[in-house]
Design a protein around this nucleic acid. Sequence first.
RNA 1: GGGCGGUUAGCUCAGUGGUAGAGCACUACGUUGACAUCGUAGGGGUCACAAGUUCGAACCUUGUACCGCCCACCA
Length: 911
Amino acid sequence: MLEQHFDFQAAERRIYADWENAGCFKPSGETSAQAYCIVIPPPNVTGVLHMGHALNHTLQDVLIRFERMRGKNVLWQPGTDHAGIATQMVVERELAKEGNLDRRTLGREAFLERVWKWKEYSGGAILDQDRRLGVSPDWSRERFTMDEGLSRAVTKVFVELYNQGLIYRDKKLVNWDPHFQTAISDLEVEAKEVDGAYWHLRYPLADGVTYEHPVKDEDGNDAMETRDYIVVATSRPETMLGDAAVAVHPDDERYKAIVGKHVVLPIVGRRVAVVADIYADPAKGSGAVKITPAHDFNDFQVGERHGLARLNILTAVAAIVGGEEARTCAIPAEYQGLDRYAAREKVVAAFEESGLLDRVEKRKIEQPFGDRSGVVIEPWLTDQWYVDAKTMAVPAMEAVRDGRTRFVPESYEKTYFQWMENIQPWCISRQLWWGHRIPVWYGADGSVFCAETEAEARLQAGPGVVLTRDEDVLDTWFSSALWPFSTLGWPEKTADMEMYYPNAVLVTAFDIIFFWVARMMMMGLHFTKEVPFRDVYIHALVLDEKGQKMSKSKGNAMDPLELVDEFGADALRFNMAAMAAQGRNVRLSKQRVEGYRNFATKLWNAARFCQMNECVLWEAGDVASGNVSQPINRWIMGEVARATAAVTKGIEDYRFNEAAAAIYRFTWNVFCDWYLELIKPLLNGEDEEAKAETRKVAAWTLDEILKLLHPFMPFVTEELWGKLAEFGPARGGFLMLAQWPTHDAEMIDAAADEEIGWVIDMISQVRGVRGDLNVPPGSKVPLVIAGADAVIWRRVDRYRDLIMRLARIESIGMAEQVPRGSVNAVMGEVTLALRLEGVIDIAAEVTRLGKEIGKLEGEIAGIEKKLGNPAFVEKAPPEIVEEQGQRRTEAELRLAKLTGARLRLSELDEG
RNA sequence: GGGCGGUUAGCUCAGUGGUAGAGCACUACGUUGACAUCGUAGGGGUCACAAGUUCGAACCUUGUACCGCCCACCA
């Protein structure tokens, strides 16, 4: 006998271990079957499971379990990402805790050893957490972006791209993170609005030059002023130490006179030219802009056009330079070594002191921050390695345009195209130690040798050349970009590559389209000549209950494992699927998760009922249409067919919410609310043949539910599958490997639908009337049916017991006329009359009828209007017109009967 | 500055041309032999606004308002 509730806490780990031990997660390897492969977006090896993973992994598992049950040869490839910066940060923090060994004093080799050790013992905890969710990747194939095979793929890709000219070294401005002291890519920079200021600085003109500058006088009239200075504005005053020019627009009349003249930069005393460049926008600020080529992306371009010096003023930690560089810029000693913000204050103070601070304008400014470090990013002039993304983007766009890869929802194609069309060179070198080291060696003369191994580099270099390897490592996303094929054994021509590539679908959130999806497309197409995946399913972002993005720093992050502990993995999973409507955010609500826990309990108890009534056995032949005679059973079989089609279609279309809603509704509102109630009289009745049939069909239906629900709620369904078998013959094997149901439309029996629909409708009508009139549920009332024909009479006869039971009826009688003093409900030709003498409040009943009559009149008026419109009758499809006609007939019939009922009541009242 | 999306019941959200839906919340009643993690019934919406297309619009078009998000070289 099943217990009263599903003890998920006891069952989940046991079931999971059983699956894993039995090898259920491994691909069938069936070469005749269609292959279906998903690679998991590899979580950071430092990561802990958060709600985003819970959603992402649940949806993948739904797909995986579904396709596995459909008999495909399914591979879900798991693994983790080495996450360069994040991991290095964790280990450096650990080092700091232990003593003050920083990585530099430790040395590269020893440090890396530490990171690997950390990875072995503490890394990848997320994968164990993942098991709690019940996900079913093939753990035996777990990969790591820095394991041997994947590292070889990375090296090979680098060398090939280098040889093809698609990877190159360039000295230009990069986004420099002064905290981590590394370059980062554009995508890792986050623009944020912060409180700041524009400092309007006066640069004195050299050589005694003056010019006339338009101003407003005290009365607000236009006037001219003779100036011996030019005003520039900046949000970063300290950069003036590296200024190389002042630019004005060539057409700007205000400054025409001084183009080609010079200013003397305060503090450093350098002469720099006033140049004409279209970059200067006359409408912004004073119209004149200071040009710092080494510290601003725009200024860099201006500098290129005018041959300006690139004067670097910052060190790797964003302090003011000293030494040779300081001399070049003529930076005074008291500025050298100052942090950028201290230098800023000092620069501003110096301007103020010398009366050259025109004004300070406090305002919000946009500033770039490192997404990991949270510090302000500096554009900094360095040598870095770049991927020619512009070239590689072309085939990647083409593949989406011609449909080889499809975005779901489709609208994300636009996001993809927009970014791809404006793609910039991808900076891939990082000044870190943890990662794939760049396979490039330099000779003493600066010659470059790019090769897969040092030995090969040596061969290229020839004897006697001393080689030094590039210090830098690659952006983490460089190796992630190869994930769909590097995990399958590429560059070897493996059987796995043959079978599982391209992947069926990539499941991810939209914030990763640029970081990852776009780059996988580029790399995949370039190296395999095939798209990496057929579909890209973009799901929502998980937000908290207030609609805020969850993050550790905000403190609003909910721990998925806490919810699993409280409500079970099934409840959380079902919640995720039910909320996964396309193109939306999902707000996580604990209450809703609780609701799905209740759903699991409901199912459990339905199974308990089946078991108590010996509804556990069935064989294939038992549910063949010809062997089932009871309309109730024929009806539920049709409902199963419909639910199966809906769930299947929902998952196929990535409409997880629709699939979840379909199985939820069928289980609770059809199977539990109606079918199980309707079969109770049969199960308790005398007709042994009907009873036997019903037991089998009920058992079968329950099994079908377990299968359809399994991808969403694997634990409770697997547990019931196993438990129910204990009461019948063992069915052998796990539910998760059972076959996904398919039913043809023939299973739907229109006559049974009609008949059972009528019974349900009738019971609902009686219940409705009782509820409206506040008839106590305990009191049974006599029912008289007026106007019934033979068909109705036979139905009533057949279902007499259950109508009486479910509608709380004492007796059912038949009559020609609606009895006086009864309360009426109308069902087509028939009037249901409840004999409620003494119980009913006539006034209340008149009100109730009035309300319904009012509703009907409104409905009829609406239909009349439509049908009275010749354009409607002429142009609308005939079936729609006919449907409206039918609706009118039905409504009118109903109206007449209800009006009659009201009339009789008022007569009774008067009498 | 460019782009994308949202506005539907008290709340959170489904619903893409033909009778407005779900879950939760709310109200009333209820220990009916599976289930109170439950049952039965009920209340509650001019689908942001305006104009258009259409026989017909929550749904298509255009505009307006408000709210988000993403991208962008930070005078």
